[in-house]
Design a protein around this nucleic acid. Structure first.
Lengths: 339, 339
DNA sequence: TAAGGAAATGTTATCGATTTCATAATTATA
DNA sequence: TATAATTATGAAATCGATAACATTTCCTTA
């Protein structure tokens, strides 16, 4: 309730002085500072940040758009973002698109109304394409950075932090090939179009490179959930001849896959090898422990946020994507197939 | 850049009319509405919500304080909160205390500066006790609601939504007892003091009720992570006589526990039964599938948000805790111990 | 069709902190 | 000590949308 005005009156100074007390205390005489301190205590003043933000034209809020908070990998990235945001004095506002089922206009509004000083897009960018198409007129949106997602033509002008998805997928596939697998299925994550495309390309590249036939029926579109990993795996197992290895676009689908394989009486990895993506914390303790491609989630989050801060501060920025290293983690869900 | 003023000028109306266009369009004549629509398009206007929020004295933001976004159960609750928040036009700002390692004053600031129209506290309340102690003076904070946490004396004046943790824990323990277990270990989640205490009480109650001795060394403090479940389980297995069942305060610790038990050459459930809490989505596909107490996470989130909205709207509210039903889900990680 | 009432629109003060510009107080310099 | 150069403080404008209040326009009905 009490405002700078009340404090100023109580302290016998002007509102400008009270404002300086908070923003540039060093330019106040000690005596004045003390008076204000006392008045603040007396009046029980606490700043109205709505007013401050309005006047300053800055919200100190970073909006993070995420397909689902539930996905562990995004949780890691978020943690990295939060760490840096905290350092820099930003708060994080999360928009969970629930795998892109959220109405676009709601989101669009967030972009164009000064609500955020910056926007981080994780995973899928498709929601953005729509939202940003509004920006034809002179509407301005805050700086945007896209992470965990490969650039598509529409968004290639945003900076981005990610692994080399194509190379990572090739690595994973070649790991399987080197073990002797020839029929390798791929379950994609259709949501993140860019990533999914790259990973599929990496898979195909590896197959081609080793003169293996790519069977189109072995390539399926998943939605990154355990449930979908299970569903698609059941379908794969129903084929007269099932693949000897399954490459999944993320660990959750891989875990679902393993469950169904074991459930059908087959063994992992003896009958079918499974490999995932992300190295979530459940991968290590799964049975068998899951071979996967690790992404440095927290590092991605930190780098993303640092870069965004750079842009916000108006500093020179490199718009070419920042590629962080991935790593193949070999555990026990992959092996040479038993004939 | 362009403001209502610019739009008003372009449309040949007053700023008040432009404001009405957005807030009570039905009271404008169609003709006027059209003029404004056109002017908005022409000027590329988009509303400055910082100004609107300031003027209205409302931020339309709900702050959710959460021990860690990574915990799946909280993810479920969050989803419920988001659903309702979306309906009601609120945005969600998340403060991840990283298991209460976040500095208090930073948080406190959020509470007293009009940044949030309401606050939801999930799990541990300890951060709040400190933050709110500042409220001695006339500082006002927005409505607060506490969920997934049992009331402790300090916060008993906040409404809350949760399961009956004590009863749930008793149910879980009695399930084990009914299977013939006598040496039952309990791994608590010390973070959420209230919950943890209640669950421990429920465990002790069941033991007492069935004339079983409660061995203090079988009760340990965990921190709700997989890692801690593993660490404590390894310790339990090193005893000359290990327990035949382990009750964990959440599923993640339970999954870690199962991993270590199998890793040590023992079998689940033949040698040791394991039971968790929360029914996270990994519980169903674990090997063996995890017996657990299910909490209706999304429902908790929804009810929490609805109640908070009630309070914000100034409606009459029942301050006694809202108890939602829990459910024992029996899978295959529990069985009669083999002698 | 004039009067009364409702509906539509305009004028202007306002929210609270910051900031510019002006002025007073202090210190340094000659 | 007078004057210039700093430094500290105050007065008042400002950010952009909203809301209270005033006024005008449009209907309705006697």
């Amino acid at each position: 309730m009490s405002s700078v005005k009340a404090v100023a009156k109580e302290a016998g100074v002007s509102t400008a002085t009270v404002s300086r007390y908070f923003n540039t205390p060093e330019q106040l005489k000690e005596n004045t500072r003390n008076k204000v301190t006392l008045a603040i205590k007396k009046t029980g003043y606490s700043m109205n940040s709505l007013a401050r933000n309005f006047r300053r034209g800055k919200s100190n809020v970073i909006v993070v758009v995420i397909p689902s908070i539930g996905v562990p990998h995004f949780g890691d990235v978020l943690k990295g973002i939060e760490t840096v945001a905290g350092e820099k004095g930003f708060s994080i506002m999360i928009i969970d698109t629930q795998f892109n089922t959220m109405p676009f206009d709601k989101m669009a509004n967030t972009f164009f109304s000064n609500q955020a000083d910056g926007i981080i897009l994780l995973g899928s960018v498709s929601p953005f394409k729509n939202a940003l198409s509004r920006s034809n007129s002179s509407e301005k949106h805050p700086p945007i950075i896209v992470s965990c997602e490969n650039a598509t033509p529409d968004i290639s002008n945003f900076p981005s932090v990610r692994i080399d998805n194509k190379a990572a997928s090739t690595t994973a596939t070649e790991h399987l090939i080197s073990l002797g697998h020839q029929e390798i299925a791929y379950i994609s994550g259709s949501l993140s179009s860019g990533v999914s495309g790259e990973r599929e390309a990496g898979y195909r590249l590896a197959m081609d490179k080793h003169d293996l036939e790519t069977v189109e029926e072995l390539i399926s579109d998943g939605n990154l959930t355990i449930e979908d990993g299970r569903r698609i795996t059941r379908r794969l197992l129903n084929r007269k001849k099932y693949p000897t290895a399954i490459l999944c676009a993320n660990d959750e689908m891989a875990l679902g896959s393993i469950y169904e394989i074991k459930n059908s009486g087959l063994r992992v990895p003896e009958d079918i090898s499974v490999i995932g993506f992300d190295n979530i914390r459940y991968a290590e303790i799964s049975d068998p422990p899951l071979t996967t491609i690790a992404q440095p989630g927290e590092e991605i989050g930190e780098k993303t946020m640092y870069q965004l801060c750079h842009i916000i501060e108006g500093l020179e920025v490199d718009y070419s994507p920042t590629i962080v290293p991935h790593q193949l983690i070999i555990r026990s869900s992959t092996a040479t197939p038993e004939k």
